[in-house]
Amino acid sequence: MNTVASCYDNEVTLLPSLVEGLSAALDSAPIPINVDKLSMNFRHTPYYQTRRGTHPVEVRLERHDKQWRVVFMASFAYSDETHRSVAPELYFNFKRGWFYQPDIKGCELARPEVMDVLLSWSRMFCRQLRDEHFDDVRFTEVKT
Rank of each mutant, 00 (worst) to 15 (best):
L18G: 03
H64W: 01
Y47F: 15
P46G: 04
T45E: 12
R69T: 00
W68H: 09
S23I: 00
S75I: 12
V12L: 02
Y48G: 03
V59D: 07
D65P: 00
E20V: 02
M73E: 10
G53Y: 05
Y48R: 09
A29F: 15
R60A: 08
K66I: 03
F42L: 03
F42W: 10
V35G: 05
T13L: 05
Q49N: 11
S75G: 14
H44P: 04
E62Q: 12
S79A: 13
R69Y: 13
N41R: 14
R43N: 14
R63F: 04
A87C: 12
A29M: 15
L38F: 00
V59K: 03
L38H: 00
S85A: 11
S39W: 11
D80W: 12
Y47V: 08
V59P: 09
E58F: 00
H44D: 13
N34H: 11
Q49P: 00
R52V: 08
R52H: 04
R43I: 10
F42I: 05
A87H: 15
G21M: 11
Y48E: 11
R69L: 13
T50K: 14
Q49L: 15
L18W: 00
A74G: 11
R52G: 03
P16D: 13
A77V: 01
E58H: 03
V59M: 10
V19I: 15
N34F: 09
S79L: 07
R43Q: 12
D80F: 06
A25R: 14
N41D: 10
A29R: 15
L15C: 00
R63W: 06
S28W: 09
K37V: 06
Y48A: 10
P32S: 14
Y47G: 01
L15A: 08
L15S: 03
V19T: 09
P88G: 13
E81Y: 04
T13M: 02
Q67V: 02
L26T: 04
S75N: 10
T45D: 11
H55S: 05
V19M: 06
I33W: 05
P32H: 11
F76V: 01
Y78E: 01
S28Y: 07
Y48C: 09
A29S: 15
N41W: 08
D65A: 10
S79M: 08
K66F: 13
L14S: 02
P30I: 08
E81T: 12
A77I: 01
P32V: 07
S23Y: 04
V70M: 02
G21C: 10
F76C: 08
H55I: 00
R52S: 10
E81L: 09
P32F: 06
A24L: 07
P56A: 08
D65H: 10
I31K: 05
E20Q: 10
L14Q: 00
T82K: 13
T82L: 13
R43K: 13
L14R: 07
P16R: 10
D27W: 00
A74M: 12
G21F: 13
L26I: 09
A87D: 13
S28N: 15
A29Y: 15
F76N: 03
M40F: 07
V35L: 12
T50A: 12
R51Q: 15
G53V: 11
L61I: 08
L18M: 07
A25W: 04
R69V: 04
K37W: 02
I31Y: 07
M40Q: 03
D65S: 12
D36Q: 13
N41P: 01
I31S: 09
D27A: 08
P46L: 06
R60G: 01
H83C: 05
R60K: 11
T13R: 07
S75E: 15
E62A: 10
R84V: 06
R60H: 11
